[in-house]
Design a protein around this nucleic acid. Sequence first.
DNA 1: GCCTCCGTGAAAGTAAGTTTCATCCGTGGT
DNA 2: ACCACGGATGAAACTTACTTTCACGGAGGC
Lengths: 302, 302
Amino acid sequence: MVKTAKVSASHETGGLIVHISGLLPSLSPAEQRVARLVVADPADAARRTITDLATAAETSEATVIRFCRSVGMDGYPQLRIRLAAEAARRVEPPDARVVGGDIPPGADLAQIIATIAFSDARAVEETAEQLDPAVCEQVVEAISGAGRIDIYGAAASGFVASDFQQKLHRIGRTAFYFPDVHVALTSAALLGKGDVAIGISHTGTTLDAVEVLEQARARGATTVALTNFPRSPITDVADFVLTTAARETTYRSGAMASRLAQLTVVDCLFVGVAARNRARAKKALEVTAEAVQSHRVRGRRA
Amino acid sequence: MVKTAKVSASHETGGLIVHISGLLPSLSPAEQRVARLVVADPADAARRTITDLATAAETSEATVIRFCRSVGMDGYPQLRIRLAAEAARRVEPPDARVVGGDIPPGADLAQIIATIAFSDARAVEETAEQLDPAVCEQVVEAISGAGRIDIYGAAASGFVASDFQQKLHRIGRTAFYFPDVHVALTSAALLGKGDVAIGISHTGTTLDAVEVLEQARARGATTVALTNFPRSPITDVADFVLTTAARETTYRSGAMASRLAQLTVVDCLFVGVAARNRARAKKALEVTAEAVQSHRVRGRRA
DNA sequence: GCCTCCGTGAAAGTAAGTTTCATCCGTGGT
DNA sequence: ACCACGGATGAAACTTACTTTCACGGAGGC
């Protein structure tokens, strides 16, 4: 097994449910059944005894224990307590079941809007909650001191990568984004100690992203992964792992929902880097803002 | 307000601690010692085992059980989870005033994260709140029936435009995104009745976007503007105006903060369009998902 | 095709929670 | 002063819940 000694985990104060959802794909089938029950109704799970829960999940107590360990708990009682706490904390908004769940076939636009806004906002909040400031700090430091920063992401994650690149560029950091794998690999091969490579992949299984980070790492660069799944392949090739917390719904794959969460993380890193040198960053932002002024329509507010 | 459908014994759902304090005088000395420990630090008590708590209260397990019964619990495990829930609830939510404002010079990463998450989440929520479902409905209808959809946006809004394009494309709608103004103008000139042009601009003053919509409108296409400012120039050339609700902060221009809000609107429109033809959209999503499968790392779940 | 490794549940083992019961102590009656 | 009584209490027996061990079976690699 890969050493989980990685500088991510264990900031777990809140967001247990989110944490579990993220881990879900990396769990074994039997454990997944347990996880689903727990995520579906944490309060109910907290009430159950281990035997009870095992039966409900159609598995053995042993598996439930394994599940507890998989999500970082000491044992079942601890999980129970944490679940109870978690369930209590979430002050259920009026009709959370309607708002939080999936979109029913006959839904009108107003419902759809409410549902999406709710899940988008939750994804942002929950992502922030489970983000480990210590890891962020280290990533910010790496970026701040980097000679060069390569950012890679495909499809939906590509926008995020591109966005990040643009942001860093605007405050004067040398950052690149490569939409093409081959170009990215070529670039990664030229990285070295002190450089930073950032791979963005919702699932964490995008072959391209993994390869790019692998290459970068082999060259001695610091590698950072941004993914929704803390145990996915991309984390094996990353020095630092940052995770998002987005859930799937029928109409929006997790990948779609996770853009928002990923952007939030990007924002945090960006502001973190900018805050390291307020004066310089501010100046850079002003200069770039001026540069686009001529492209604005005048005589009317902006 | 939704009535609490639950009829069960949990009439004491809140205020367990208060309840215990009230009963305190009526308890036997040994039970009082237990009660005092519990009231003093419910979270800590929840963490302890019955033997542990008994020892701490200098009494026996039997007394702890009696105490549980005295305060109306079935047994110790039930008390434990109730205590955990209670303790979690009384954790002060982060101070909105501190969190909502700007980022102070000496802020650490944790503060930065909290601030950003808060404002990002707010932007999403507020955007959804002020979004007019009727307008959305019309836009969804226009997109659903469009022969062709042109989407335009620059810089940060470009990512959003591109994201939207990709989404629509994935469910089988003919959509284009043009990073280049000239190409966009050329394309707009070829639009006609029944086609749709969507311009995305945070400030609503981006000259390029305005020109593109203007051109499209002149050719008879339906024009849609997505901006943060309802009375900005771009709205003059749009048949339908959708607005976001993002605020500026020192370190993040409104344009940066508004990406999230814009994406939320995109999500809503997308789901709206997809919902119009669930079967077809679902099929299209599945097909495109399959197409990228070979680019995934195998042998590991994710 | 064989081997190895992983997931799994049955069953054994341990710890936690619960009940029982004998003791203690104070009270009030004789 | 003594005894009878009853409530409070903890030791220990007991039960249930939790944890560990282990052997089986099946999937993937060589």
